[in-house]
Design a binder for these strands. Structure first.
Length: 117
DNA sequence: AAAGTGACCTCCT
DNA sequence: CAGGAGGCCACTT
């Protein structure tokens, strides 16, 4: 019970979720940025693991992309397409190269500090 | 408990 | 701009 609480309230996954759910509509954040804001500066890769295993819910997982402004979908074929259409529906424009302008859409960060900072 | 894996990132050719 | 090498970290076997 206690382990469950610990992990669900302030564990790595929980922190990642807490950050991602604050990314505003029409903006995007990189895995590294999210991990950093969550308090794990070098855990960009692990961040991907967490979001990959996430399914359903209200979390705007689609607003998290890689540092090159591209969508990383791993081996999965349907998710990347869904992610892009969800972003485009929010106004994020992707160039022909498959990249979006991070200078325009990159999230500036949380307005309020995270509980653990 | 140890080794393998991956929706990453950065620096170097 | 494209491709490769190393380093990082949590998660899964």
């Amino acid at each position: 019970m206690e382990e469950w609480f610990q992990d669900d309230e302030f564990g790595f996954r929980a922190r990642i979720y807490r950050v991602v759910e604050q990314i505003p509509e029409g903006k995007v954040a990189t895995y590294g940025q999210v991990a950093s804001l969550a308090g794990y500066a070098r855990a960009a890769r692990a961040c991907g693991q967490v979001l990959r295993s996430y399914v359903g819910g209200d979390l705007p997982w689609h607003r998290v992309i890689n540092a090159q402004g591209r969508i990383s979908g791993g081996g999965d074929l349907h998710r990347p397409a869904l992610q892009q259409s969800l972003l485009e529906a929010e106004g994020v424009v992707f160039r022909r190269s498959g990249r979006c302008d991070l200078g325009t859409y990159l999230w500036g960060g949380p307005q309020d500090l995270m509980p653990w900072e």
